[in-house]
Simulated assay, not measured.
Amino acid sequence: MTTPHETCGTGGFSCGLDATLRIISGKWKPLVLFFLRDGPKRYGELKRLTQGVSNKVLIQQLKDLEADHVLVRTDYKEVPPRVDYALTPLGRSLADAIVPLCTWGTEHMAEMASIFAKRDTLP
Rank of each mutant, 00 (worst) to 15 (best):
P30L: 09
L87M: 01
G105T: 12
L46I: 13
V99K: 03
Q60G: 10
A19D: 07
V70I: 12
G105N: 10
A95S: 11
Q61K: 15
H69F: 01
G12Y: 11
L21M: 08
G26Y: 04
A97P: 00
P30S: 10
P81E: 01
T74W: 14
A117I: 05
V83R: 01
M1K: 02
P30R: 12
V72Y: 12
G12Q: 01
Q60C: 03
T106C: 09
F13Q: 03
T2R: 00
G39C: 12
A117W: 06
F34Q: 02
A97W: 02
N55E: 13
T10V: 03
D75H: 08
E66S: 09
E66T: 15
I23R: 04
K29R: 15
D64E: 12
L94N: 04
V83M: 09
T50W: 06
E6S: 07
G9H: 03
Q61V: 10
L33M: 14
V57C: 02
A86C: 05
F35N: 15
A86P: 00
V72Q: 12
I115R: 14
F116K: 02
Q61F: 07
A19I: 01
V99H: 12
K29I: 15
T10K: 08
C102P: 00
A113K: 10
E6Y: 08
P89W: 05
R42P: 03
A97T: 02
M112K: 08
